[in-house]
Structures are given as structure tokens and as C-alpha cells.
Design a binder for these strands. Structure first.
Lengths: 114, 114
DNA sequence: CGGTATCCTTCTTGATACTG
DNA sequence: CAGTATCAAGAAGGATACCG
């Protein structure tokens, strides 16, 4: 398939694993989709993503920041305001995410869910 | 985003999670890609996918069969021959997988890996 | 050749509670 | 408002060994 490589103290065997590290898991795509129309604050993300816990939102946002998929803007106001915004790296993923959604819907249709 | 739903005793919150259950994880896409040009036998899959263990190949093939992403053909020969083949559900995923790969490669390029 | 079982470790996720 | 810490349960994955 291809040669494996190291990144951030982890071994990857192919480009898909690398992409999965950026947008895989349960919560990263829902977060990215919430940010697709512009910056959103923490509390609004929490409200927009059903069932996500503070811990998951917090840890996933940190990971997305580390991978430079989102940037955090802190405004020194009272009450404090913090907004998260997609980077170009994440914006490039949007067509892929849309195709992913379409495939998911087609599988759901096959399974008789819709 | 959308209403959650149940399937196979598990809760899903959106179509992407459902798609991830079919092609997510470390090994399902490499297996699907090995089968893209037609049926392949167990031993050849093992040889073509570097680093996969028998346990992982075995469990992932069972899961792919359960989700009707692959079919197993058993030939009563000596020595026994068993081939795995993609179903239409998996074939439909190939364009998505290719786009996934392309995104992974572009991320790798951003990261200076290639 | 093509599995299958068992044990064990690591990673992911959930529940809960507390802070500047 | 926007985090942050701690504990624990469960799932995913690796090592090893054995079977028809």
C-alpha cells in the first residue's frame, strides 16, 4: 500500500489513518460542521451538539487546535467570550465530510432506517 | 443536526457515525482497498496488508460480513480455498475512500511528510 | 490454508464535581 | 461563561498459542 511514517509520536500506515486522526472519532466532524458558517462560541457549540459532554467538547477542541484544524479567539470582555473558527485545513475537509454524510445516508436507506 | 437512531443495539447520532461503523477504524479501509479489483483469499489479504495480525484480519472480516460489506466464498478444495469479495454497499464507498486518501495526502503534504 | 481462543494493555468515553 | 480535574467503565487492539 505505502510506507509507514511517524508523526507526533505515533505510527501511521497510510494517508487514511492520518486523515482519520484529524477528523475521525465521534465528535470531530459534528464540531467542524457546527463551525462551517463562521466562528462559534463554546457555549453555543455545546448547545448545538446534542449529547456532548463538557469533557468531550473540551478535549476534542484541544485536539483540533493541536492539529491546527481550529483556532481559538479569546476576547477579554465581561463575561469572557471565546470563539472557535475553522482553519483552511479544516475547510478543505468540508467536501469530504459532505460526501461522508451522503454515504451514511445511503447506508441508512439500505438499512431501512429512512 | 438530526434525530438519533438505534441500529444493532447501538445508538447513532448522525449519518457519519453510521458510515464510520462501516468503514472506520484502522483496518476496514485497507481491507476494502485490497478487494477493490476482485475477490482475494485470506492468505493474500494477510500478505497485502502490512502489520495486520490474524486476530484483526479475522475480526474485521467478520464485522464487514455482518454489515454486508463483504461476502465470503468457500470452495471445498484441497487445500481449502476461501475468497472475500466486496458487495455493492462497499463498492459505493470507493469514491469516498479515494477522496479520503486524497485529503490524507494533502494533510501529509501540509505537515511536511511528503 | 484458514481460522479461533485467551489474556492483557491501551485508548476512548462517560459521570461527576469544581474553578477563575 | 468557559473551562479543568479525577475516577472508572468499556471498547479496541496486540501477543501468543492452538485446531480442522
Amino acid at each position: 500500500m505505502m510506507k509507514e511514517f511517524l508523526h507526533d509520536n505515533r505510527i501511521f500506515y497510510n494517508p487514511i489513518e492520518f486523515a482519520m486522526a484529524h477528523i475521525g472519532g465521534t465528535w470531530k466532524i459534528p464540531i467542524i460542521l457546527c463551525l462551517r458558517n463562521g466562528p462559534v462560541r463554546y457555549g453555543d457549540l455545546k448547545k448545538s451538539i446534542p449529547h456532548i459532554s463538557d469533557k468531550m467538547l473540551f478535549t476534542q477542541l484541544r485536539e483540533l487546535e493541536e492539529k491546527q484544524m481550529v483556532v481559538k479567539h479569546t476576547f477579554s470582555e465581561k463575561p469572557p467570550r471565546v470563539e472557535y473558527e475553522l482553519t483552511p485545513k479544516a475547510i478543505k475537509a468540508l467536501p469530504l465530510i459532505d460526501q461522508f454524510t451522503a454515504y451514511g445516508i445511503s447506508l441508512m436507506s439500505d438499512a431501512g432506517i429512512i
